[in-house]
């Protein structure tokens, strides 16, 4: 279970451009569930996902994984925790353009004792499921937006993580692929994974066990 307690993020504190991106947010994410965050642009969805994914330090508040506070842990510990448990799908996709689709997908494996080569089969399997098998060995910069998003999807799943953070995972893909992704998310939940996503997609919200609505950085 993920518990978020009184989480606040204020950017540029004390400066003229101070922004309260998230204010005093508390929520719980049960294991084996899909949780959707929604709300207008700029309401703090990405900020919350980043903090839960331990890639952004909150201004105040607490985050607990299975009852254990993770914010006071060292940077090294948090990095290791991410490596072992998290998969990320970013709003801006964030693939390295100089690498091929396959290389991008295998990248998370390089910081571990796993042999990236052994995961190639698994990656290609995912590529065929998502209809980008023929793009596996192309440079990412040659891919369309939707193809890139599918590649990012595979990258998040390659290590079979416990928690998946997906920031608007269906914005760039067509309806057919969206439906494919809904199916994958629900089977991931069935296999015991926990998924936190942000979305404007009503279908995806329907799939979620719980939906949190935000407005101007606050839960509503």
């Amino acid at each position: 279970m993920i518990e978020v307690k009184n989480l606040t993020k204020i950017f540029n504190r004390g400066k003229f451009n101070e922004t309260a991106a998230l204010v005093d947010v508390s929520l719980k994410v049960r294991d084996r569930s899909i949780v959707a965050l929604t709300g207008p642009s700029g309401c703090g969805k990405t900020t919350l996902l980043s903090m839960m994914g331990l890639i952004l330090t909150p201004t105040s508040g607490e985050i607990l994984y299975d009852g254990e506070s993770v914010l006071r842990a060292s940077d090294y510990w948090r990095t290791q925790f991410r490596r072992q448990n998290f998969g990320f799908i970013f709003q801006h996709i964030n693939l390295l353009p100089q690498y091929t689709t396959l290389e991008n997908v295998l990248l998370p494996l390089y910081s571990s004792d796993l042999a990236p080569g052994e995961y190639e089969g698994k990656a290609r399997e995912w590529f065929s499921r998502l209809g980008i098998a023929d793009r596996a060995d192309h440079l990412v910069e040659q891919l369309s937006g939707g193809e890139q998003q599918r590649a990012a999807f595979v990258r998040a799943l390659i290590k079979d993580p416990m928690y998946i953070f997906a920031d608007e995972p269906t914005v760039f893909v067509d309806e057919e692929t969206s439906r494919l992704i809904y199916g994958i998310f629900s089977s991931l939940r069935d296999s015991g994974k926990t998924i936190v996503l942000s979305t404007h997609d009503p279908e995806l919200m329907k799939l979620a066990d719980e939906v949190f609505r935000f407005s101007k950085g606050r839960l509503c």
Binding site: I55, D75, Y76, R82, L107, P108, S111
Partner: peptide
């Protein structure tokens, strides 16, 4: 910079 942020997200430690 982008690359380092990304690698860090995936669990590359500062030392890595």
């Amino acid at each position: 910079k982008f690359e380092v942020g990304l690698l860090k997200t995936f669990g590359f430690s500062t030392l890595d």
